[in-house]
């Protein structure tokens, strides 16, 4: 009778097979799940792709560990009559240890290189910018624009222009917009300026001015959220960013500027 503790070639093949299938299913599931809100900026697209890569790399690692744990628990568990049995006295295997040091090192190095390149990508400044100053205070956002007449005005709702690339110019239509550059200031405590749909987040810190940039690519209305605990009203500290057609933006800007002057 075959020794149930023996690991045969077919066992290994079976584990590899199950591992591949599980990884493929896991990756497919990871890519299929609708993790992110709709991408409304080029930054969002880069980060979403990056996340897909992370999923593709992570799932096999988890599958590998889980399969070995499960296989060991099933195959090597103590059976009747084995209560006094000891395992083989293996103390280590230098080659294996080098492999499992080297491969993860290579993997994380590659990830870091990719991560750094995505970072410089999403941080890249464009020549054509709209500058907006965001003021954070307990528990509201204010945005300071430069009006058509050169005067500055404050608004609680953000509007940014984005030129539709298709005929349809409704909610969700693709578009190309100018880069919005935020200077972020905090009046009282630390807040964090976050547009989930654009994936960009930056703390507002008392005493310093922080910056972030987004390049809108999708018409629509998206929440602006405070992501840093700022006190009793933290969860209601929200605002909205409206990505609109250049025509609507110009009209809004003119109205606001006029209201300010008036």
């Amino acid at each position: 009778m075959k020794n149930p503790r023996e690991v045969t070639r077919s066992d290994v093949i079976m584990m590899i097979g199950i591992g591949i299938v599980a990884s493929v299913v896991g990756i497919a599931l990871g890519l299929w799940i609708d993790w992110f809100p709709a991408a409304a900026a080029t930054q969002a697209t880069s980060i979403d792709t990056f996340y897909d890569v992370l999923i593709i790399i992570s799932v096999p690692v988890f599958v590998l560990v889980t399969i070995i744990v499960l296989f060991s628990a099933l195959r090597f568990r103590v059976r009747a009559g084995e209560e006094e049995l000891d395992g083989p006295p293996t103390h280590g295997n230098t080659r294996l240890e080098i492999i499992w040091t080297a491969i993860p090192s290579i993997m994380v190095t590659a990830l870091c290189v990719y991560g750094a390149s995505v970072l410089s990508d999403i941080d890249a400044a464009k020549a054509d910018q709209i500058q907006v100053t965001a003021y954070a205070q307990q528990f509201a956002w204010d945005f300071e624009y430069t009006g058509t007449n050169g005067n500055k005005f404050l608004t609680e709702q953000m509007y940014v222009p984005c030129k539709p690339t298709t005929e349809a110019a409704g909610e969700g239509a693709p578009c190309v917009g100018r880069q919005i550059k935020f200077d972020i200031k905090a009046v009282d405590v630390i807040h964090s300026f976050w547009i989930p749909a654009m994936r960009m987040k930056q703390d507002a810190v008392p005493g310093i001015v922080t910056h972030t940039k987004v390049n809108p690519i999708r018409l629509g209305t998206y929440p602006i959220v405070c992501a840093e605990l700022c006190g009793i009203g933290h969860s209601i500290m929200r605002s909205t960013i409206h990505v609109v057609t250049p025509a609507r933006y110009t009209a809004w800007l003119a109205a606001k500027s006029a209201a300010k002057t008036g």
């Binding site: 560990v65 090597f76 568990r77 395992g87």
Partner: peptide
Amino acid sequence: LGTLWKGVIH
């Protein structure tokens, strides 16, 4: 994992 492998697992 290497320790588990081929052990007598209780």
